[in-house]
Every structure is written in structure tokens, then in C-alpha cells.
Amino acid sequence: MAAADMDRSITRIAHEVVERNQPDSVALVGIRTRGVPLAERLRALIAEIAGVEPPLGRLDINLYRDDLSSVASYPVIGKTEIDFRLEERAVVLVDDVLYTGRTIRAAMDALIEFGRPRRIQLAVLVDRGHRELPIRADYVGKNLPTSEQEVVHVRFSEIDGHDEVVVVVKDAAAAAEER
């Protein structure tokens, strides 16, 4: 997925968010790390389309992971910043890739501790399948069927210097480690 394709998908998602919600009640919450630049781009686009800039939060879900005791390398705990009230808002959780759904489960747990949003929706750039929980996205940039032996990398110029989505085969050793 090249930069232009990513742009188009993100723009479409922004339109869909505005279409399905009252723009002034929308809030965006990006999941660290790469949900954050995506949420920032959506915010700018929504501001352009609807004339109101939705508030933006950043969420680190590492403390809510269900595999904390068994992860091989210890997570770096990033900052969570949600400095607006969630009540009466439609909160759009934003992440780069939707895979097992466990990150989203953790993010919803974390979010609910900050308040009671009117509804929570999910926007992702790539849905690669292989869900392990009953979770689905409301806004999808691209459905990308993958095998579990593959890894999807989403890169944003804000973090990685350029925009792209690539699918690569997992290194055998890395795959063994992850089991």
C-alpha cells in the first residue's frame, strides 16, 4: 500500500466518521504507537470536512495486556493522555492494524476507566483477519487477507520517515520466539 493509497483510505475514513456521527460529539483516541499519527491525520481531515476539530487522546495499552506475564521482552510503558471528558461522546479508537483483537479489548478496558463514552467505534487502516475475540472494526482502510506467518508493517512519515504498508514473512527465529 503506497502513500497515495493510504491517503485515500484515511480521507475516506474521515468522511465516514463525519457521516455516521454528530461531528461535535466525536473524540479520537489513538492507540500507541502507530494509532497516534493515524488519529492525528484523521483529526486534521475531520476538522477540514466538518469544521470542528475533535479532541484527541493517546492511549498506551501495555498495562492492560492479557499476556503481560508471558511476553518475552518487557514492555515500555508509554504515557496515556486523555484530557477531555468521555461522557456523551462517540469515541473512535484508532489503530494501525486489526489482528487478534486483543489490543482493542485492552484499549476498551483502559478507556472505560476514564469514563463512560456514549459509544465506542473502531477505525483501523488495515484489517488483516485472524480474530481471537468477537471484535470488528467500524471503519477499515483496507482488508488485507494474510497468513499467520506474515507480519504487517504500517509506516507513517511522522515516526518512520515515510508512508507505506508492507506484508513480510515472519523471520523463522522471530516466529519461534513468539510462540
Binding site: D60, L63, Y64, L68, V76, I77, G78, K79, T80, E81, D109, A110, E113, F114, G115
Partner: peptide, 20 residues
Amino acid sequence: LDTAESFKEVLTRDVKKVPS
């Protein structure tokens, strides 16, 4: 120290608890 900085934010929330 960096982890402590993130935890300091947890202490300012309404629900001052994480399930870690």
C-alpha cells in the same frame, strides 16, 4: 524512572488503578 513517569499519570485518573 520513565516507567514511573507513566505511572504518575495513572495516579491522576479518576480510577487510579491498572490491572497489570
